Amino acid sequence: MTEIPYAIALTAGVLAVLNPCGFALLPAYLALVMTAGDGAEGRSAPPWRVIGRALATTAALTGGFVTVFGAFAVIVVPLALRVERHLPVVTIVIGLALVVLGGWLLAGRGLGIRLATPRPGGPRRSLRWVFGYGAAYAIASLSCTVAPFLGVTASAVSLGGPVAAAGVFLAYAAGTALVVGIVTVATALARDGVVARLRGALPYVTRAGGALLVAAGAYVAYYGWFELRVFAGGAEHDPIVGTALRIQSALNHALFSVGPAWLAVVLVVLLGAGGGLLIVLRRLARTTRGRGPSAHDRTPGG
């Protein structure tokens, strides 16, 4: 085989998002997107801003994710085996941090984080937390995903040198961004649609996100502990991990069956149709608010 494996790298990037080690970090990320403030101060952002914010968030998470993989390939590979044994400890810490965040949200508190709002002259919204989350996602996922990543990268280097390796790296990042983009845009549109139609439901959305964070964080920490037990010579079978792996495997199989090309089509359709639907919901909300109380509902001197 003399062809550079761009298609394989693209597919590997797609599947990397739903890997066994970091499987629970994706729904936890979506919970954070659902509960993050948008700085609208009582007003829903325009649809184009919602979509732009979601795409910026996608880029930040993907950037953090692939930066860790690139650094691992360039710097850490000579010490890979030694480093790998300590990765479960980091996974446990990440999981416990998510549990704490989830408990904070369940208590009715806000996180005070902001997603990027691409508005000229407006206040800047930090994406550092998203980039950092992407890096944490990648660190927790290294044990399960670094081997395919290094395989396609090494193949590209042997076939086409550093330029080909850079192309494969970008293809891998594009595959990751496809999946992250679809779920981020869908979540952002759903969140802003709920806000536009029923602002009173937002506290319940926040608490639901907190519950999801607690569950996801608990599983991430448990998986790290499971990996430590396996490294220490313990049993490689666990009922909780086994159940999660079956779910993850089914989702991975579905992603592989769909393929990157169709995922790109889904993202484009979601951007267009979702934005249009959000415009309709906003107009309906404005119409409902504009009606106000009728003359029969008013009382004298009220």
Rank of each mutant, 00 (worst) to 15 (best):
Y219F: 09
A80Q: 11
V83E: 02
T206N: 11
Y29H: 12
G132K: 05
L267N: 01
R109N: 15
A107N: 06
G37Y: 07
L245G: 14
I51G: 01
A235L: 12
A138C: 03
G39D: 03
P300I: 10
F72K: 05
V194R: 08
V258M: 11
G108M: 08
G193V: 00
V194F: 12
G224D: 01
W129Y: 01
A7H: 13
H253I: 14
L26G: 06
M34L: 15
V77G: 05
F231A: 10
F256H: 14
P203T: 01
G110Y: 14
E227N: 12
V241N: 00
F72V: 09
N252H: 13
I279Y: 12
S126W: 01
A71S: 11
G242W: 01
A285W: 00
A216P: 06
A196F: 02
G259M: 02
A138W: 03
W262P: 06
L255Q: 05
P27T: 00
A116S: 10
F69W: 07
N19I: 08
A177Q: 01
F65H: 08
P293V: 03
P148L: 02
A216S: 07
S143I: 11
V99Y: 03
P148Q: 04
V220D: 04
L281V: 11
V68T: 02
F169K: 06
L278H: 09
L30E: 07
R282K: 15
N19G: 12
V93Y: 08
R114S: 14
A16R: 08
A201D: 06
W48A: 11
A31G: 07
A12D: 14
R125W: 14
